[in-house]
């Protein structure tokens, strides 16, 4: 994510090169939400992975935050056209959470406290591409930005990085989520500007 090559004109890869087409650089961190902010007490919080075979893997808050964490520094891109570069997070890699999960499913449906859903191929959650993030810029993740924990999948438009994440259902068939059933692109690659279903 942070390995850049020099362009053929010999200049260091700069901010312009890190902005996908149609995006502008935001200095603040806009709060987007499709509904009221859920407030989930940590002693009642849990994260689950449900497999296509009906097996449930479950983590409490204490269990999740006791797992080995990473501190990714990533660029994020919202479909409403703002991008932020070099944001820093702390979270547990999905690779860690999937270590003991047996599945042949190709698809994941992420669901959140408050009812939000978003879908993506399971491959896009693995191999160092996604985290359950619970700290942002050195602070606990606030509820307005998805705290206590949100999915972080920075290589896709940010609506895929579900706030208030509650779990992942593994599916053998793709199941479009909240925005994917309302005109937004099923995959959402910012570098291919996959904003709407027709793109």
């Amino acid at each position: 994510m942070s390995t850049f090559t020099r362009g053929f004109r010999g200049r260091r890869r700069g901010e312009d090169d890190r902005l996908p087409p149609g995006q502008y650089l935001a200095e603040d961190f806009p709060v987007l939400s499709a509904g009221p902010t859920p407030h989930v007490p940590l002693d009642r919080w849990e994260f689950t992975i449900d497999t296509e075979a009906g097996q449930t893997h479950r983590w409490t808050w204490r269990e999740l935050t006791a797992l080995p964490y990473e501190e990714p520094a990533v660029d994020i891109h919202c479909v409403t056209s703002w991008s932020k570069l070099g944001t820093t997070w702390r979270g547990v890699s999905l690779d860690v959470l999937f270590e003991d999960v047996e599945t042949t499913a190709d698809y994941a449906l992420v669901h959140s406290y408050g009812g939000y859903t978003t879908n993506l191929p399971l491959d896009d959650l693995l191999d160092g591409k996604a985290w359950i993030a619970y700290r942002y810029e050195g602070e606990d993740l606030t509820p307005s930005h998805g705290g206590p924990a949100r999915l972080l999948v920075p290589h896709l438009y940010f609506w895929k990085s579900a706030k208030w994440v509650r779990g992942i259902r593994l599916l053998t068939e793709d199941w479009p989520g909240f925005w994917e059933t309302a005109g937004y692109h099923n995959y959402g690659d910012p570098w291919r500007e996959q904003r709407y279903a027709d793109d």
Partner: peptide
């Protein structure tokens, strides 16, 4: 409306009644 589309929710149960993108 601070979202990728407009999401209108019921004032009683807060479930989604209408979405417009």
């Amino acid at each position: 409306d601070r979202a990728p589309g407009l999401v209108a929710r019921c004032p009683g149960c807060e479930e989604v009644v209408l979405r417009l993108v």
